[in-house]
Write a protein that binds this DNA or RNA. Sequence first.
DNA 1: TTGTTATTGCAACCTTGTTGCGATAAATTA
DNA 2: TAATTTATCGCAACAAGGTTGCAATAACAA
Lengths: 117, 117
Amino acid sequence: MLAVQEFFENSDYAVSVVDLVNHFKEEMNKATVYRILSRMESEGMIHSFNGMDGLTWYAACKHCSHDHHEDQHPHFQCKKCGRVECLEISLPIPKVKDHKIDSEIVLLVGECNNCQS
Amino acid sequence: MLAVQEFFENSDYAVSVVDLVNHFKEEMNKATVYRILSRMESEGMIHSFNGMDGLTWYAACKHCSHDHHEDQHPHFQCKKCGRVECLEISLPIPKVKDHKIDSEIVLLVGECNNCQS
DNA sequence: TTGTTATTGCAACCTTGTTGCGATAAATTA
DNA sequence: TAATTTATCGCAACAAGGTTGCAATAACAA
């Protein structure tokens, strides 16, 4: 579990579960990776969300504990390099007629600074 | 293909691919459902997106053809009944420093009118 | 040391989604 | 109409993400 923990430390980027399983495949079993990830998520160390690709992505939490989970920020995915980033901004929740809206899941898609030539 | 087409006509609701395969399982094969769905999508009759659950959801297009696909609207999912709806509104694309944003994928989560007691 | 609990590896499994291929149906052409 | 081409379908097998049961090991406490 420590190795996975260290992996997320000091990273603003999200990682897909496929990349994680691949990254640790010499070190630990696929099932173990999944178990560690869900444990870390329930303890508020990381949060998960779905990428455009349908995969589950994980990223480090900044200000969360197991009873206070603040993962409502939007994510950004660069369509060139595929990197996914957590954005530490809060978007206004839109008002829609006849709908009581509690939260919104936002994935912004575009080009990151590195990929803009 | 006709049966699937009729299924989407006059519906503002999105359907998960699992529900679709299940709904047509007496009538046609799983592979056929998938093939019809991707054909209908490429012809601009329906559009797809990823739900919170990681599943693919499909919904009827309103003003699309095979060369003009306008599926950038937000979706709304009721967390009580699970129904997913297309919202015919357009949200402003937020500006984020150091990021060139082309589009945004938005899933609003809350309670629909039916479920609010 | 002994007993208890948490963590892991492995294999088997489930689910979503795709593909190759032979069979059937529909549309073309002669 | 008959022959031929083309599109569609069913089936089975497969791939990839993800989960689970169970035995083995590691960590911890009495």
